[in-house]
Each structure stands twice: as C-alpha cells, then as structure tokens.
C-alpha cells in the first residue's frame, strides 16, 4: 500500500493549480504549509519516484496554441501494440490509450497548424494501414475544481 505523508497529501490536493509563479515557488509553498523548502522538495521528489505525479506542468486548453484533435482507430487485438508503438513515435501525440471497445485505440494529437496535423494523421494511416477517425473539439465545458483525491489508506 502506498504510504503518503500528510505533507504529500496536501501537496497532491492543493497544488494541482495556482502553482506560484515566483522565483522560489517551492519555498513559497513551504511557507504556506509551515514547513521548509527542503521538506517540499523532498516530498515532491519522493512522489515523483513513486510515480504518484506525472510532472509539475501546465494544462494547455485545446486549440489555444496550435491545433489539436482526439483521434481513434479500430485495431485487431493482436496488432495493437505494434500500432500503438508506431503512433507513439510521433512527438505530436501526447496521450494514447487502449479502451475496451471495438474502437479501441484513442489518442490526442497537437500540432502548430492544421496542415501539419493532417500530414501526421495521413502518415499514421499509411504506416499502420488502418483508418483514423477524427474528433476535434467543438466546445470544452470547464471544470473549476481540482479533482479531489481521496487519499485515506484503505
């Protein structure tokens, strides 16, 4: 079972957004939580080592910068690893999941412009010899709250 300290739980739940844009952000977080900067750095490094966090990063809304689309393919089970690996070679692909459905491979592409995005999708179709369905975003319905993690040990 994953053992997390109180500090780690606080960091996970309270700093999914509004990360300080200041010269010493971790020191500022430490001040808010009444601990030292080193405590925060150590806690985060451990969360990173334990694969509890993906990164400290930014969520960019789709189509604000560049163009993006959700895409999907129907791949026979015995070929899915090959196709997933080919798709992952593209730096334009940032998420790629297998889902339990006939339409089983779902990925997100982002590129600086529509021409480039189309070229990448065409290349994927040619290389894998399966068609790609495209589902570009029409509208995002915003969620204001962070996802509340229930981190009680159970």
């Amino acid at each position: 079972m994953l053992e997390l300290s109180d500090l780690q739980k606080k960091l996970l739940n309270d700093f999914q957004r509004n990360f300080p844009l200041t010269p010493k952000p971790y020191a500022d977080i430490a001040k808010q939580l009444g601990v030292s900067e080193n405590d925060v750095l150590n806690a985060l490094n451990e969360l990173d080592e334990k694969q509890c966090i993906s990164r400290i990063g930014a969520i960019i809304p789709p189509n604000q910068i560049g163009v993006s689309t959700l895409a999907a393919m129907s791949i026979p089970e015995n070929d899915i690893e090959r196709v997933a690996a080919q798709i992952n070679q593209y730096t334009e692909v940032n998420h790629n999941y297998e889902r339990e459905h006939v339409v089983n491979l779902w990925f997100v592409l982002i590129a600086q412009n529509a021409v480039h995005l189309n070229n990448v999708i065409s290349s994927i179709e040619n290389e894998t010899s399966y068609p790609v369905l495209r589902f570009p975003l029409i509208k995002e319905f915003f969620i204001d709250l962070s996802f509340r993690l229930d981190l009680a040990n159970d």
Binding site: F15, Q16, I59
Partner: peptide, 14 residues
C-alpha cells in the same frame, strides 16, 4: 493559454 499550472497527478498510482 495556460489553463492550469501545477502538479499533474498519476491517478492510477494513487
């Protein structure tokens, strides 16, 4: 253009 700056959690591990 940046919607959210912060810790991106790995739901599965948690």
């Amino acid at each position: 253009m940046i919607k959210r700056l912060g810790i991106i959690v790995k739901h599965a591990t948690l």
